[in-house]
Design a protein around this nucleic acid. Structure first.
Lengths: 246, 246
DNA sequence: GGCACAGCAAGAGCAGTGCTCTCTTTTTTG
DNA sequence: CAAAAAAGAGAGCACTGCTCTTGCTGTGCC
């Protein structure tokens, strides 16, 4: 796989990476709409036509950047919670991290990490959580990386539920929503009561609503101390999903 | 003002409106990135250079469309709640609409109207609540139209508070957030306790997070019955701001 | 009423874009 | 070593936003 498959293959992946790096640089500087294949090629000292050997179209380049962005923000979320899925559950876990404070700590850590990544990479964030690029439909391959942040949030709630510290949300739940929640839980292979799943999905969307509003300027002249406001709201969201008493 | 200020002025506003209409049509068909001044001019049967007499640049056309979109979605929100600000408070209001059910009804009506408008005008929605167009900074004039939806939501909560049916949210509130909330309430000239204001701002952002996720495809293969899910979540949001017991 | 002038339309043109085609060079493979 | 595959380079097409110059026309002033 990663063996030296000849200088050509090595050069190809190197150049592919260089193109993406330069594209990301332009993205950060000017935004997705101003990303120009010709400018990337110019900066890399190659003919613009040569670039089409690596990415058949501008949209394909954008797709690659979108995938990378999903993975980057997902990785940031996972790194913020050492007990996230994919890590082996070690023996000390049950005794050490399952009390309410620790669970809330994990929750806020994941949320804060997502926001930090977004603030550090606003244009890449806009690429994946802003308006979809016109005429572009996300290929199937983006589905899994796109779910990583959600899974990191789910992991915290799942652990809380497993340890019995989760306060199930009250309130009515229509049959339609309950069905949706059950189907989703089955597909993701998680064991959570339907009301919790429903609230979790809503909270997931709301978290990004918060971040998007901050990043896209809707909080301009409305909220100044965004750090404090975000921390406060994330804590309320945690209470909403049942990680703490309201 | 609206008098016949000569055929010239009349023609000017007519043509300006025609340009915006055609631009909106292209926006709906292809999205903001593919909006082309030349194509608009072509469709209107005029030279592309002539269009610059009406809008000095493509960004200026977009700004006009953004303003219109803010006003349209704001109007939709206000129309959904006959007691929204700007309408004279009539005598029957206090006796008729201040019980819990009526308040929740007003709340869900406003939220549903906003979502409906968004679903009906996805590209215009993306223009105002999606990624900001690169290199474009919203002029001061957008601030007021942008706030109309928020004001419609505030009106419901304000009335609930005034009639004493509002359940103030519990939970700690940091000094920073309390200060922000008080400053905002003062600027908007509304009388609400700081915790309520803070929750209201967060809920406002969360509502658009929900709509954006639905519209931008994040709920693809996650939530199918979006109507039911939205209704359920909006009800929870209402409870969150204190319009109903949780 | 005639007239200067501001507002308007049109065309040519510039610099830039995504993308395709052909032609040459380089590297891998049989 | 020769054939084949891959990669680079350049020209070219159709398109974009935008500017400049050249005429035309409706409007208010004398």
């Amino acid at each position: 796989m990663t063996a030296i498959r000849g200088a050509r293959a090595r050069a190809r992946s190197d150049i592919t990476a260089a193109i993406k790096d330069e594209a990301r640089r332009q993205l950060a500087a000017e935004g997705a709409a101003k990303l120009s294949l010709r400018a990337v090629a110019r900066e890399l000292g190659m003919a613009s036509s040569a670039l089409y050997r690596y990415f058949p179209s501008r949209d394909d380049l954008l797709t690659a950047l979108i995938l990378d962005a999903y993975n980057a923000i997902g990785e940031a979320a996972e790194a913020a919670d050492p007990t996230a899925p994919g890590r082996p559950a070690d023996a000390e876990r049950d005794t050490a991290v399952d009390d309410v404070d620790a669970l809330i700590g994990r929750w806020t850590a994941v949320c804060a990490a997502v926001r930090s990544w977004a603030l550090a990479h606003p244009h890449e964030y806009a690429l994946i959580y802003g308006s979809p690029v016109p005429g572009y439909h996300a290929p199937r391959a983006t589905a899994e990386p796109a779910g990583r942040v959600a899974l990191a949030l789910i992991a915290v709630v799942r652990d809380a539920y497993a340890s019995g510290t989760l306060q199930e949300p009250a309130g009515p739940l229509s049959d339609a929503v309950a069905g949706e929640a059950r189907a989703l839980a089955a597909e993701l292979d998680i064991e959570l009561p339907a009301p919790v799943t429903a609230v979790l999905v809503a909270t997931w969307a709301q978290l990004f609503g918060l971040i998007s509003f901050e990043l896209f300027g809707q909080f301009h002249r409305v909220i100044e101390d965004r750090d404090a406001f975000f921390a406060h709201t994330v804590r309320r969201l945690a209470a909403g999903v049942g990680l703490a008493p309201p």
